[in-house]
């Protein structure tokens, strides 16, 4: 059952990712990318990473892709500008992706030796290694606390980015309010 679900979601992921990079309309591309994110959540679910799957939907499909859509609409790129989806640079992208894929294949143990033990990782199971238990720091407690620092850094960045363009857009902001 798990294998079937894994293959199903993995296949959906690859197909939607391919469709995402070949669409000419940026909004359509973003929509296929949403489906890619959701399929990835499905893959996580098939592997038993329940909390991670929900986080994937919550953050990537629910927040990051909405942001992407807003950016695409904010720029408002006319579809005609993107008539040629394949540029010379995209060839290098394919080469790089292929290299990474080959590297993965060489590092991967032979298929018959792979025996994945799947157990469901729920939110509570994550808490003790991540944050700590029994009055001890968890193994990744520092990373947990650094996560908050990262969020603060990202807030600074976001505000700086929006503020630099403030003078030019202030008129439009009035119109659209």
């Amino acid at each position: 059952m798990r294998e079937a679900a894994f293959l199903l979601f993995g296949g959906a992921m690859i197909i939607s990712a391919l469709l995402a990079v070949t669409r000419r309309n940026p909004v359509h591309a973003a929509l296929w990318l949403v489906l890619t994110m959701l399929s990835l959540a499905g893959v996580y679910l098939a592997l038993g990473a329940v909390f991670l799957a929900m986080a994937q939907i919550f953050v990537y499909a629910g927040a990051i892709m909405v942001l992407f859509l807003f950016v695409v609409m904010l720029v408002g790129a006319p579809v005609e500008e993107l008539k040629t989806p394949f540029r010379k640079g995209s060839l290098w992208g394919v080469v790089a992706a292929g290299a990474v894929f080959v590297a993965f294949l060489t590092r991967m143990p032979a298929l018959e030796r792979v025996r994945v033990v799947v157990f469901e990782v729920t939110a509570r199971a994550l808490a003790s290694p991540l944050i700590g238990s029994g009055g001890n720091w968890g193994r990744h407690a520092l990373a947990f606390e650094l996560g908050s620092v990262l969020v603060v850094a990202a807030i600074l960045g976001a505000i700086l980015m929006v503020r630099t363009g403030r003078e030019e857009i202030s008129e439009e902001a009035d119109d659209d309010r």
């Binding site: 949403v34 986080a55 939907i57 919550f58 499909a61 629910g62 909405v66 859509l69 729920t122 939110a123």
Partner: peptide, 25 residues
């Protein structure tokens, strides 16, 4: 009955904005 029910609700709820933003666009 999902072991992550509450967060599932919020995750699925966060997908609601696509319909409106796509309809508008």
């Amino acid at each position: 009955d999902l072991p992550v029910g509450v967060i599932y609700l919020l995750a699925v709820g966060s997908l609601g904005s696509y319909s409106v933003v796509l309809a508008g666009w």
